[in-house]
């Protein structure tokens, strides 16, 4: 009994204690509540990460599910996905299935697992942006922008939002620009199984006229930490022919450009080899020829 009591006390001390769960009725309501309580308040996306990795400073959870953020709309500007939209809903949307070859729809229907894909929200994955996150690197590669609310709405590139995270700001949604709809999206995860956490993520968006590549976004994540664009590698593809020589040159250069770091799961040397393999997988995706 004593042991059990000590265990509960220690657990609460380590995990913190949520004392309030607040169902916000509007973005204004949610933002005002967060401002009043910060830094002791957190917005709830799917809630998965909040439970798995509790922050002892957080005492209030602000639920955004009644703020009208569960939507997907298509317009001339592109596709907008509300931040409370689950991965399953994204994976089933007809417009997203057609966008950039359907890569986002395909992956959001397969990563994690079925009973989590129905919980995990787009806003949640962006807001938490854990290094092992699969969706964010791909959204960055797709050129996504994020619509934020901090009393007023504003839009900024997702890549920029990740670099300069802004606590307290509500993620209202993300926009996939119409200009990228005809490009080819690609995500490569190095894992043993679909459910496994990736050792390295690589994502790309490449436009081509069938012979030459006209635009490219290349993103690595997992290690180093968060999703980052690598414009130097993109330059190695843009204006070049869709040939093995082009990709081989970039694959040769990439391990020196991407900062892979090293940790207990895999060495830096191994990760550099994965970087090279990622580029060769992109070649196969773009040319249909495996190396």
């Amino acid at each position: 009994m004593i042991r059990m009591t000590i265990g509960i006390v220690c657990k609460e001390a380590l995990m913190g204690r949520i004392t309030e769960y607040y169902h916000a009725t509007s973005l204004e309501d949610a933002f005002a509540k967060a401002q009043q309580l910060r830094p002791a308040a957190a917005y709830v996306g799917g809630g998965v990460e909040l439970i798995l990795r509790r922050n002892p400073e957080i005492t209030t959870l602000i639920d955004l599910s009644r703020c009208g953020l569960d939507y997907i709309t298509a317009s001339r500007e592109g596709i907008e996905i509300g931040s409370q939209t689950t991965l399953t809903t994204v994976s089933r949307n007809a417009d997203i299935k057609k966008y950039a070859g359907g890569s986002l729809a395909w992956w959001t229907g397969r990563i994690a697992q079925n009973n989590l894909r129905d919980m995990i929200t787009v806003g949640g994955v962006i807001g938490r942006n854990q290094p092992w996150n699969d969706v964010v690197p791909h959204l960055v590669a797709l050129g996504a922008q994020v619509r934020l609310f901090d009393g007023a709405e504003r839009i900024m590139p997702l890549a920029g939002y990740i670099e300069a995270k802004q606590p307290g700001v509500i993620i209202k949604g993300i926009l996939l620009p119409a200009g990228n709809a005809g490009s080819s999206g690609f995500l490569w995860r190095f894992t043993r199984t679909l459910q496994d956490i990736s050792t390295l993520h690589f994502s790309a968006l490449v436009s081509s006229d069938g012979k030459f590549m006209t635009a490219a976004n290349l993103v690595f994540a997992g290690r180093p930490g968060h999703a980052a664009l690598y414009p130097r590698l993109s330059e190695g593809l843009v204006g070049k022919s869709l040939s093995h020589e082009t990709f081989a040159r970039v694959a040769e250069m990439a391990p020196d450009v991407v900062e892979v770091g090293s940790d207990l799961r895999a060495t830096g040397e191994f990760r550099r080899e994965l970087v090279r393999a990622a580029i060769l997988n992109l070649e196969e995706h773009m040319t249909g020829v495996a190396q």
Binding site: V44, G47, V48, L50, D63, T88, L116, M119
Partner: peptide
């Protein structure tokens, strides 16, 4: 209790969720 095994799966509005990671308030 970490959303890995699926034993706790229930339907929430007809969709399967891991109840071990679903906040009851949600």
């Amino acid at each position: 209790h970490s959303g890995d095994c699926g034993a706790c799966t229930v339907l929430l509005d007809r969709r399967p969720v891991a109840s071990c990671l679903t906040l009851a308030a949600k």
